[in-house]
Amino acid sequence: MVTFQEYFDALLEGKVLGLKCNDCGAYTCPPKAVCDNCNSRNLEKAELSGKGRIMSFTTTYIAPAGYDKEVPYVVAMVELEEGPWIVGRLDIAGEKADEIGQDLIGEEVAVSGKEFPTEMFYPDKKRRVVPVFKLLTGV
């Protein structure tokens, strides 16, 4: 088992933790109770490469209460090299992302973590760690 605390601690050190299934070999990330592919509980903690590619993104201009100081920000979904998808923020200005548009999809990124202030309803009452995606190629 990897707790969310452990997962986010690792992310702040630039590491992506997940679970490797000893039955089917698939990776599950973020961690959960069973293998995301075969439901096995025969899992072991694994460090993933921390590399992936952008599958989709959106620049958020209207934010929820607690996030409004951060706009505009770019939320992205990244497919990690090992297969799982994670949600985080793209390290690029919102306007720039919109200017590039669909061509951002498929671009390679490296994953790390950045600490933000938490908010009233967020499950971690001390901090909010956001997965941050840095583009590996110039755009």
Binding site: F4, P30, S56, F57, T58, T60, I62, A63, P64, Y67, E70, Y73, V75, M77, I86, V87, G88, R89, Q102, I105, F116, F121, Y122, P123, D124, R128, V129, V130, P131
Partner: peptide
């Protein structure tokens, strides 16, 4: 609440991701 909310994903955001 944890892995999507941390990035500030909203509902228009969910469907913007889907549209792309």
């Amino acid at each position: 609440g944890l892995h999507e909310m941390t990035a500030g994903l909203t509902f228009p955001g969910v469907f913007a991701l889907a549209a792309r």
